[in-house]
Structures are given as structure tokens and as C-alpha cells.
């Protein structure tokens, strides 16, 4: 793993002829638009929705006045068992998907980590799923999961009435498996980077000591790949926590609420029931959770970078 060298120019270099803009103004000119633009597009709207989350207001009746309700919405949501159910469902989905991606992705990376012909092409082919649009993936997996003319049941030798997406207990598994298909390549990519960076001489030394495969794996491979695997875990946790597209086009949250993760619930609250105030509060609760996860992620990313 090559880590970039980080160098800074000292701002003033006496003796250099300079007729154009000063470094200071170039710096400001280059940075301020970006910061200002992001603030306008994200921070300002978020302040607006913070305001809304303390009010009762419906976006489809824009002419009616917003009524201040204090923390009522937050209290309602946190006291609503349906919210906790959605939350636990999302947690389950994230957990199963991330563990699955880790196992499959790391496993495939171990297999791929050897001399072979056309390794580059095969690796790229394996990476295709993660570059696709989650919405379109969800859509065409809906076809694959169909018990009759889909391909999943015949491949696994299941009968043509073994329903997936309309069965409350299996729908989540179908979603998780699709997610694993799509994102295990991501874990694989990171694992491969980690594996190929392990110095060969470590393995040679282990071989001379007649160390078992398991011993080598536990004491050489795993510790050296772990940092990258952790990045993969945190990243996938965060992304799956935000998941909307794939599940929305595949099951729409159904059957019942058995795959209704909180992004979908939020969408229905905000744009079908038009309960704008309450959904803003819901959004804020999610926002705080995401900020928590992403803090860990960015901290960790920086740490990796510094090594």
C-alpha cells in the first residue's frame, strides 16, 4: 500500500517574482466557493428542517401556518414501538449484510490472491456489481427472486412456489443476499489491497518454520489486513444504514413492514403522508446516528492515511 507523501508549500517564499494574484487570494478563491456552496446546499436546509422538526406543518398544504409543538415530535417518535421496530429491522439488515459481505468478500480475495492468468480482467468483472445503480440492481433482482421465472430457485433446486419477496420471513434475507452480491466486491477490493501489501518474506519464514495454514492466517494475514477490513466494515455499515434505493425498488418495504428500513419509512412519512414536521424530527434522529457512525469512519480513515 503506497501512502501519499504530504507536503505543504510555505506560503511566502522571499525572492520569487510574482505579479499575479497573491497566494492568499488564490487560496480563498479556490476554497471559499466550495465551502460556501456546500453550506448553502446542505447546512442551510438542515437548519430549516431543524426548525420544522419543532413544528406541526404539512408541505402539501403550504399556505397553512406552522404550529410550534416543541419536542412533541421527537417524543412521539421515540415512544412509538413502530419506530423501534423499524430501527431494529435496519440494525438486523445492516448486521447480516455487513457480515455476509465481509465473509464473502474476504473469502474471494483470499482465493484471488495468487498468481493466475487474466487476474486483472477477472477482478474487474467481479467488481462490476458494486459500480451499478442500486435502484436498477434492486429492480432486476426482483426478477431473479421470482419463484416461477426467476433464476434463484432453479439454481438452488427450490420448488417454483418457494416465495421470497412476498414472504415476511424471507424477504429480508433476499434483500440481504442481494446486498451481499452487490457489495462483497467492495470488501474484496479492499482485502486484495491489504493482502498484496503483505511482504512475501513473512510467508516464506512461516513456511520454513512449518507453520500450519491456520497459524499463518491468524498471525500474519489477518493482523495485516485488519486495518483495511475495518475501513470496509465501517464504510459498509454507514452505507447500508442509509440504504434506500435497492430495497425501495425491490420490495418497497414489504411485505407488511418486514423490509421497511427507516429510509423507506421516512420517505413514506414525508412524501406520502406529507407529515413534514414529524418526518423532519425523524430525519434528525437518523442524522445524529449517521454523524456518530461517520465520525468513527473519518477518524479511522485519517489514521490509516497517516500510517
Amino acid at each position: 500500500m503506497a501512502v501519499g507523501v504530504h507536503k505543504e508549500a510555505t506560503n511566502s517564499q522571499p525572492g520569487l517574482a510574482r505579479t499575479g494574484l497573491s497566494d492568499l487570494s488564490i487560496r480563498n478563491l479556490f476554497i471559499i466557493p466550495t465551502i460556501a456552496f456546500l453550506a448553502c446546499m446542505n447546512i442551510f436546509p438542515l437548519i430549516w428542517s431543524l426548525f420544522l422538526s419543532f413544528h406541526e406543518w404539512r408541505a402539501n398544504l403550504p399556505d397553512e401556518k406552522a404550529v410550534y409543538v416543541g419536542i412533541q415530535h421527537y417524543r412521539d417518535i421515540l415512544n412509538d414501538p413502530a419506530f423501534w421496530q423499524t430501527f431494529s429491522l435496519t440494525a438486523q439488515y445492516v448486521l447480516y449484510a455487513v457480515v455476509g459481505e465481509l465473509v464473502v468478500g474476504f473469502g474471494v480475495a483470499l482465493l484471488l490472491n495468487r498468481e493466475m492468468k487474466a487476474k486483472g480482467v477477472i477482478t474487474t468483472l467481479l467488481l462490476l456489481p458494486m459500480m451499478m445503480s442500486p435502484a436498477v440492481v434492486g429492480l432486476f433482482w426482483k426478477l431473479l427472486w421470482n419463484p416461477g421465472w426467476g433464476i434463484v430457485n432453479p439454481i438452488f433446486g427450490l420448488a417454483n412456489d418457494y416465495a421470497w419477496l412476498s414472504d415476511a420471513n424471507r424477504a429480508l434475507w433476499a434483500v440481504v443476499i442481494t446486498d451481499i452480491w452487490m457489495w462483497a466486491p467492495f470488501v474484496m477490493l479492499l482485502s486484495l489491497a491489504g493482502l498484496s501489501a503483505i511482504p512475501k518474506h513473512l510467508y516464506e519464514a512461516a513456511e520454513i518454520d512449518r507453520a500450519s495454514w491456520w497459524f499463518t492466517f491468524r498471525n500474519i494475514t489477518l493482523p495485516l489486513v485488519t486495518p483495511l477490513l475495518l475501513i470496509a466494515i465501517i464504510f459498509r455499515t454507514m452505507e447500508n444504514f442509509k440504504q434506500f434505493d435497492m430495497i425501495f425498488t425491490m420490495t418497497g418495504g414489504g411485505p407488511g413492514t418486514s423490509t421497511e428500513v427507516h429510509s423507506i419509512r421516512l420517505y413514506r412519512m414525508a412524501f406520502q403522508s406529507w407529515d413534514t414536521g414529524k418526518s423532519s424530527a425523524f430525519a434528525y434522529i437518523l442524522l445524529i446516528m449517521v454523524i456518530g457512525i461517520s465520525m468513527i469512519y473519518i477518524k479511522y480513515l485519517n489514521k490509516i492515511k497517516e500510517r
Binding site: I31, T34, I35, L38, M41, N42, F44, P45, L46, W48, S49, L52, A59, P62, M238, F241, K242, F244, S263, L266, Y267, A270, F271, T276, S279, S280, A283, Y284, L286, L287, V290, I291, I293, S294, Y297, I298, N302
Partner: peptide, 28 residues
């Protein structure tokens, strides 16, 4: 600098469904 970079990256972490409500209103 690191804080600014952190701020910029954090914008990428926002779930679309969370920002979309106020953005929708702003756009409207």
C-alpha cells in the same frame, strides 16, 4: 485544515432521505 476537510467529507455522509425534505422545500 483537517476540520475543513472533515466538514467537506461529512457532506458526503448525509443520508439522501434526511436532506431531501428541506431541499425539496428550498427548491420549491
Amino acid at each position: 485544515k483537517d476540520d475543513w476537510l472533515f466538514f467537506i467529507l461529512s457532506q458526503k455522509m448525509l443520508p439522501p432521505m434526511v436532506v431531501i425534505i428541506p431541499i425539496f422545500l428550498m427548491y420549491r
